[in-house]
Write a protein that binds this DNA or RNA. Structure first.
Lengths: 243, 243
DNA sequence: CAGTGGTCTAGACCACATC
DNA sequence: ATGTGGTCTAGACCACTGA
């Protein structure tokens, strides 16, 4: 049925690219359902099997979630599609440190320093918002978090952050800016705690902490958020599986 | 062509399971080529497409590597299929710490302590071999490694380890015991350096280090090796991508 | 040149979810 | 009952490899 075209890139990859573009454009919002494979096959004038390959590739990247009998849904940080997706920190008892207990420390305007500017590919000194908060378990502070959002990508974020104090930054980005975080890069190191960290985490000055510096990328591959997560040695650890 | 059977588990998963079993049994050794899709399709009396799904699933897990025009090969830690697959440590300059420079410290008999025994699912006190070595860059020690292999899974490993001092333990396991490591789990924490570590890494006593405790699993899912990797804070970091 | 994996089609039946 | 994704088949053409 479909016209045979000269080979450029596999059709299913072209379809995938276009579908991603349409998700980014907001045609289907996070949590909503995509057209069925047959509908898309008709729209693109391709066989259902080719559409399937495109969607399966997106599902592998965690961009959409498929449910037999129901449909294909754009992944959202709301709902229970993939909870804890980006949470690799565990407490001493081997339990994931979730976001139920959060203590908001501060939110305020900040300029991107050299490190943040490089990470987010913005000019040094760019305006933005910086927030500090703690994650706790049963009242004990376990993680110190500091994250930066640029004014250019997330205009006017400060008042909303202060008012709503969202437990999930990525859900906040999704709802307010239609920015879907699909990938994060983390760089871990051990170092001594800073004065602020030792005070907030209630640990001795300069005692060993595990620091994760994270850059979160949107569906389009653009760096959106810079963050550091700091946990005291001994009370926290970080888990990873490599296949 | 193929007979229609009552549904139990998808055929392609059954095929995959059987192919994995045959790889484990040594029918095709690491680095060697599997029969073509058509040959396997005939052997299993299934369509080529079903065989393809089975093999593609294995390829996704890194178990085999496919090359158009050549064939499907059992993954080996030799060759250049996936170099640095399990190396997440970087030096201060942002370069992966490779295994070119290695300093062998010691190899000797050891009994599994509680931690190792739990990790490898063997009785506490089981006999085995423990090795300590350093990874260096331009003569500077950057990583301290200590790993344990059980006598039951890797009989008589000590003399060979001492004689060959293999740069890649997993290549050694593959060649000598036909055990293919396909998955590792790592747990990271920050702590102060031990006396031995500070001496070997040439850092102040109790200064912050990043420790990765690793369990390496074979193709069959059995834990095979226990290891810790220790790098000084500031000079080393650990990188990770989450999708 | 023949053989390999990579892509694509057009049909089929299944289990599951929803109404 | 209808529609969804999940599996399976049997053909086809393509680009690449190596003799």
């Amino acid at each position: 049925m479909a016209a045979r075209k000269p080979v450029a890139k596999p059709l299913y990859l072209q379809v995938k690219q276009d579908l991603v573009k349409r998700v980014v454009a907001g045609e289907w919002r996070p949590g909503h359902v995509l057209p069925s494979e047959f509908k898309l096959a008709e729209e693109y004038s391709l066989s259902q099997g080719t559409i399937r390959k495109a969607i399966e590739s997106m599902a592998l990247e965690g961009l959409v979630t498929r449910q037999a009998g129901k449909g294909t849904f754009v992944t959202s940080h709301a709902g229970d599609y993939r909870p804890f997706r980006f949470h690799q920190f565990y407490n001493g008892a081997g339990r994931r440190i979730a976001s139920e207990e959060t203590q908001w420390i501060s939110t305020g305007p900040a300029d991107a320093d050299r490190i943040i500017a490089d990470a987010l590919r913005i000019p040094e000194g760019s305006a933005g918002v910086e927030t500090v908060r703690l994650r706790l378990t049963e009242g004990t502070p376990l993680l110190y978090e500091r994250f930066f959002l640029s004014e250019s990508l997330c205009p006017n974020a400060q008042p909303v952050l202060e008012r709503e104090r969202p437990a999930s930054v990525y859900l906040f980005l999704e709802r307010r800016y239609n920015v879907l975080i699909t990938r994060v890069e983390e760089q871990l190191q051990a170092r001594g705690a800073s004065a602020e960290e030792s005070r907030l985490l209630n640990i001795p000055a300069a005692s060993p902490v595990l620091e994760a510096e994270r850059i979160a990328y949107s569906l389009g591959g653009e760096p959106v958020e810079w963050r550091i997560i700091v946990g005291p040695g001994g009370r926290t650890n970080y888990r990873n599986v490599i296949v």
